Amino acid sequence: MGNTLPNPHDTLFKALLEDPERASALLRESLPKALTDKMADDPRPVDGSFIDENLRGTHSDRLFQVALRDGRSAFIYTLIEHKSWPDMGAPLQLMGYRHRIWTRHAQDKPEQLRKLPPIITLLVYHGRTPWNVPTRLIDCIDADEDLLELQRDGGYAVKDLSGN
């Protein structure tokens, strides 16, 4: 009858990310050293998914929160991409997931919007061709250096008409 799993890679990574000890090991070896050096303990899973309903067949995700040595915390967002080709929409899609995570974090606590924890994203891809999609949203914007600089940190201009 063959393989009855819809996607064995997805099943494997979901199982790894569901087990706290294995998830911690996978994340510590996969994430940037700039984060792992600051982690005070192992990442804890956070309930919920941030994937659009129409993408659940080709994606799965897991959110973790980790305490940092300085007393703050960070989110680690893992997205398992199981398409057989690189998804050029991934950078924009991941920005949308970050927005959802921060919005949920600050839900009913507007003061949290000034203290958003960083979100470090790990995309696990296992397609047939190498991943050749930009890993930063800024690299998807078609502009000269001056205009890119205005985009780099997500800043915006304010014209305050309040007269204060």
Results as ranks from 00 to 15, higher is better:
19 D>Y: 03
20 P>T: 03
22 R>V: 11
23 A>D: 02
23 A>P: 01
25 A>D: 09
28 R>T: 02
30 S>V: 01
34 A>T: 14
34 A>F: 04
36 T>C: 07
37 D>F: 03
39 M>C: 14
39 M>E: 11
39 M>G: 08
39 M>N: 08
39 M>V: 10
42 D>S: 15
43 P>W: 09
43 P>I: 09
44 R>T: 12
45 P>N: 08
51 I>Q: 03
52 D>G: 04
52 D>W: 04
54 N>T: 10
55 L>A: 04
56 R>Y: 01
57 G>A: 11
59 H>L: 15
59 H>Q: 09
62 R>C: 05
63 L>F: 04
64 F>S: 03
64 F>H: 06
65 Q>R: 14
66 V>A: 03
67 A>R: 09
67 A>I: 00
69 R>C: 00
70 D>P: 06
73 S>C: 08
73 S>F: 15
73 S>L: 10
74 A>W: 07
74 A>P: 07
75 F>W: 11
77 Y>C: 06
77 Y>N: 13
78 T>M: 10
80 I>P: 00
81 E>R: 12
83 K>G: 14
83 K>E: 15
84 S>P: 00
84 S>T: 07
84 S>D: 15
84 S>I: 03
85 W>S: 12
85 W>K: 13
89 G>A: 12
90 A>W: 00
92 L>Q: 12
93 Q>V: 01
94 L>N: 02
98 R>G: 02
98 R>V: 10
100 R>Y: 01
102 W>N: 13
102 W>K: 10
103 T>H: 15
103 T>E: 15
104 R>C: 05
106 A>C: 15
106 A>N: 10
109 K>C: 10
109 K>M: 13
111 E>R: 11
116 L>D: 07
117 P>C: 06
119 I>N: 07
121 T>G: 05
121 T>L: 05
121 T>P: 00
122 L>H: 10
123 L>E: 07
124 V>A: 09
124 V>D: 02
125 Y>D: 06
127 G>I: 03
129 T>E: 13
130 P>A: 14
131 W>Y: 15
134 P>H: 07
136 R>V: 07
136 R>A: 14
136 R>F: 02
137 L>G: 02
137 L>K: 04
140 C>I: 02
141 I>Y: 15
143 A>W: 04
146 D>M: 05
146 D>K: 14
146 D>P: 00
147 L>N: 10
148 L>F: 04
149 E>H: 08
151 Q>C: 15
151 Q>W: 09
152 R>V: 01
152 R>A: 11
153 D>Q: 05
155 G>Q: 11
155 G>A: 12
155 G>V: 01
157 A>E: 08
158 V>D: 02
